[in-house]
Structures are given as structure tokens and as C-alpha cells.
Amino acid sequence: MRNRRDAGTCSFLLAILLLAAIGLDGCSSPRLGDDGESLKRIVLVAPVHAEEQGDAMEHGADAAAKEFGAELDYISFGPDEDAKEQLEAALQAVEGGASAVLIDPANETVLKELAERGLAAGVPVVALNEERSAAGVMAAISIDNEEAGRQAGEALAELLDGSGTVAVLHSDRRDPDLESREAGAKAALAEYAGIQVIDGGACGNLRDACWQAAKVLLDSERVNGILALESKASLGTADEAMRRGVQGKLKIVTFGSELDQLELLQDGILHKLVVQNGFSTGYLGVKQAVELLKGAGFEQPTVLETKVIDADNMFWMDNQKMLFPFVK
């Protein structure tokens, strides 16, 4: 009778041990995998009208995501899509359960609204290429547009040997970034007594429209150098220079690193490009987002350097990797 009871106790204990062992095994083995829960979904909302720059950003963000163990969603836009679509897509990403949102906002409203929504939902928002901030923007990666403008102005002044007429080709939309560039450039040019700066008109985001604007400008004024604040403006200007047969003589300095611009740079029609590193922007954006998700507080905006590229240095090792990020 007693023996039977002891045997019963023993088998009961064995059963408990077995169950515990199974439980231990079961609860520990997924931990050995370890990434099930820690995978963060970071959404990168590309700039509108971004082209190569956006791709470079994605490339960098991808590298960072791989390094820091996050999942990256890249939202890009067609050429006819604008701020409205960007905001919609970004808000959708917040609703869709993104851990963090990186955005190169089309304008201040987009950033403001997204930041507001992100703050409410507890999703950190990282602003890329945007100097202005809004409540809820936890980190920012940008370039110093004024410094970039100054670099462009310096480069142009050098090309003109310190004397001549410089026209500034504006954008037809109001963008504080572009205004900073212009201010920087004008400040740099103002240091050269021989250089006279005139308004070169404005054009939108179409190459042909900018060509027309350049034509109007060159028809009416005698200019030695043109500072194009946007890439499309530089392309239009280059087209007009070639049409007039003044390529090389008309010094053109501009911003951006689009493939067309690079070809024109190599061929000597564009003279200098002030380039920002999109890869770094994307990489650092994701890195900061990961840090924010780990619990870091608000970060001071990170300011990236811009580089002046010309036909001579564009194929240097470090520059060509920046200008041609993709191995095709």
C-alpha cells in the first residue's frame, strides 16, 4: 500500500520534471533565434522628384538597416506625384504600424502634419534634408544649405577669376532650402568686387521649361556665369548653352548629382556640382532611428558636408563611389 503510494509520488515527480524540461526547452529555443521581436520596421519616405538622390538614400538606409538589424520599407513616388501624395503615404505608414518614419519632406506642412501624427502614435519621425524642425521630429539629418550655397558661389567666382556677371536661376516654388543656398552663394560672391549678381528668372521642375527660362535670360542679359539652384535648372541651362555654342565658356555651377548632370560635367558643359551624399543621409537616418527606438532622446540635427565636384575629380576613387553608388 505504502510502496504503491511512493511509486505514485515518484512518477508524479518525474512527470513534473519532464513537463518542466519541455517547458524550458520550449520557451528557450526561440530565444536562441533572438530576432523575432527585435525586428523594427523603419519606413523611408523618399523625397518627391528625387531620382538618383532618393535611390542613394535608400541604398544607405538599406546598408544601415542590415547593420542594425531593422527592416526597411522604401516608399518612392512617380514624377507626377507631389507633397499631397507624400503626406498620404507617410501617414499611412504611421497607421500601418511602422516603428519609425524617415522622411525627406516636400514642404514644411508635410513634416508638421506627419510629426504631429507620429507624436500621437508614439512613432519617432526623422527628418532628412530638412533644416527646419517641428514638434515630434526626433532627429534630423541635413546638409547646411547656406554652406553649400557658399561653396557654389566660391566655385563660380573662381571659375570667373573674380570678375563677371552671375545670374541666379531660381525655382518657381518657394523653398527655404533653396533660399538658404541662394543666400550663401550671394554672400560668397559679394566678397568679389568684380562680380555682379543679377536675377536669372525662375523655372519649375521640367528640363524644357528651364531651357526656356535660360533662353530668356541669355537673350536679355550678357552673363558669364550661371548659378542654378536646382538640377533641372542646370540641365536646361546646359541645353541652352550648347544651342548657343557657348558650352564651356558659360560657366555653370549647380547642385545635385543626377546622371545627366554628371555627363554634362564630364563633357565640360557644367563646371562644378555641389553634391551631397545621399547614401550617408539614408544611412545616418536609419542609424538615428534605431537609436531612438532603443530609447535615446532627442538628438541635435546632424549636418552633413557637401562636396564640390568638377570634371577632374569626379572619377577619383572616393568621388566616383559617391556619384555612382550603384553597380549596374
Binding site: 544607405g60 546598408a63 542590415k66 547593420e67 538589424g69 551624399n277 547614401f279 550617408s280 544611412y283 545616418l284 558636408e305 576613387m317 572616393d318 563611389k321 559617391m322 553608388p325
Partner: peptide, 27 residues
């Protein structure tokens, strides 16, 4: 997180690096 990179034995130039750009940027 580990990776593979390739250098040139002569001068130590980077032939391939997954984060070549970051190295050039000094990051």
C-alpha cells in the same frame, strides 16, 4: 553583421566594401 571586403594588395585601396561610401565619408 559580419561581412567581407576586398582590398588591393599594392596600395591598400578598397576594391569592394559594403560600406565603402561611409569609409570615404569618414563615418
Amino acid at each position: 553583421r559580419g561581412y567581407v571586403y576586398i582590398i588591393d594588395e599594392g596600395a591598400g585601396n578598397i576594391v569592394y566594401h559594403p560600406q565603402q561610401q561611409l569609409i570615404y565619408m569618414g563615418l
